[in-house]
């Protein structure tokens, strides 16, 4: 892939095939941690950081460890272990060396291990056969798409707090319906093909 192709791939991952609105990867934190724009931004940044780093690490693990030994079928186990260890390591590293960033992202980090966006981006890299640079770019763009989605949605939800829906729709159902409307808006991008 040349530079232009990588740019187009990133655009596709960011908007056209947005993790939340077209693939449903990472819906739990999207629906759970989107009450305030500030917490949503924190979660989004933590996810972006972890996905980009884990994309690079899982690429190395797959092509330097699993593939040479014919252990491709173990990729799910290997990836989830790498991700769990990585999240733990990032947490310790940030606490020791960058306390400011740790206090901003710290509480979201343990939640990320079970965020399916992380595992699915690692698996997608293998599925699509990306090279190392492409993998890192893809992960960065896709997780930025997640951040965009969650921040925009958090902005919507702060407005919804003043609304007075029927009792049955209070809370989660209303959130889901708002997400549906936002997904409809994002589906406009699905016509964009290169």
């Amino acid at each position: 892939m040349n530079f232009g192709q990588i740019l187009l791939m990133m655009f596709t991952a960011l908007l056209v095939e947005n993790f939340i609105f077209s693939k449903f990867y990472g819906c739990c934190p999207f629906l759970g941690v989107s009450e305030k724009p500030s917490t949503a931004l924190g979660m989004g940044m933590a996810v972006t950081f972890v996905i980009t780093v884990s994309g690079a690490v899982t690429w190395v693990v797959y092509y330097c460890l699993l593939e040479p030994f014919g252990l491709e079928y173990l990729k799910t186990i290997a990836f989830i272990l790498v991700i769990a260890a990585l999240v733990q390591f990032i947490e310790m590293f940030l606490r020791k060396f960058i306390p400011a960033l740790y206090s901003a992202l710290g509480i979201y980090l343990p939640l990320i291990t079970t965020n399916c966006a992380v595992l699915s981006s690692a698996l997608l890299i293998v599925q699509n056969g990306y090279g190392f640079v492409e993998s890192v770019c893809f992960c960065f763009a896709a997780s930025l798409g997640f951040t965009l989605a969650i921040v925009v949605f958090a902005g919507l939800r702060t407005r919804m707090e003043n609304a007075d829906p029927p009792a049955a729709f209070k809370g989660f159902p209303l959130t889901l319906i708002a997400a549906g409307l936002l997904a409809m808006a994002f589906s406009c991008f699905s016509g964009v093909k290169f």
Binding site: F172, L176, I177, A179, G180, L181, F186, S187
Partner: peptide, 10 residues
């Protein structure tokens, strides 16, 4: 489509 998934579940 994804939009329908969110709304139907809602």
């Amino acid at each position: 489509l994804p939009a329908g998934a969110f709304m139907t579940l809602g």
